[in-house]
């Protein structure tokens, strides 16, 4: 397994955990308020900071586990896989943001708009790394 494939696995796991934490946090806040909780800056910042820290730690661990591959540049296959996975991610993000905007037009709920758009961003990133793994394992 190449460094870039291990990286995709690490990012997929970290982002999935982050998505779970964010959804659980917002669901918990919403349950207490009996309505959809508004976006809270500290929660968003905590999500971003933890994701960044975990991804750095993950990549350091991957590099330490096999230092000979740590400096591997993306070759033509890695770039093709990244481009195709990025396309999947872009489509999902676009659909998600359009759905969020559409929901806003019908509900005028800004909280829902933010959470739906942020969810689309998180899901699209997970899909990108998931697609990379599929392409690495199954061929491209």
């Amino acid at each position: 397994m190449s460094f870039h494939e291990k990286s995709a696995w690490a990012m997929a796991v970290i982002l999935l955990a982050g998505l779970g934490w964010y959804v659980r946090t917002i669901a918990g806040m919403s349950a207490g308020m009996e309505q959809l909780a508004p976006p809270v800056l500290p929660v968003v910042i905590a999500y971003i900071v933890v994701i960044v820290i975990l991804s750095i730690v993950g990549h350091v661990l991957i590099a330490v586990a096999k230092p000979s591959e740590a400096d591997d540049m993306m070759d033509e296959r890695d770039k093709l896989i990244a481009a195709r996975a990025g396309n999947v991610s872009g489509v999902l993000l676009g659909v998600g943001v359009l759905a969020a905007l559409g929901a806003y037009l019908f509900t005028y709920d800004g909280n829902l708009l933010f959470h739906a758009a942020f969810l689309a961003l998180m899901v699209s990133q997970i899909a990108e790394y998931g697609a990379r793994i599929v392409y690495y394992r199954g061929g491209v």
């Binding site: 397994m1 190449s2 494939e5 591959e69 591997d72 070759d75 033509e76 296959r77 890695d78 061929g139």
Partner: peptide, 10 residues
């Protein structure tokens, strides 16, 4: 040829 070992395997 300028690719990784994993690409040669693929």
């Amino acid at each position: 040829i300028g690719v990784t070992r994993q690409t040669v395997i693929a």
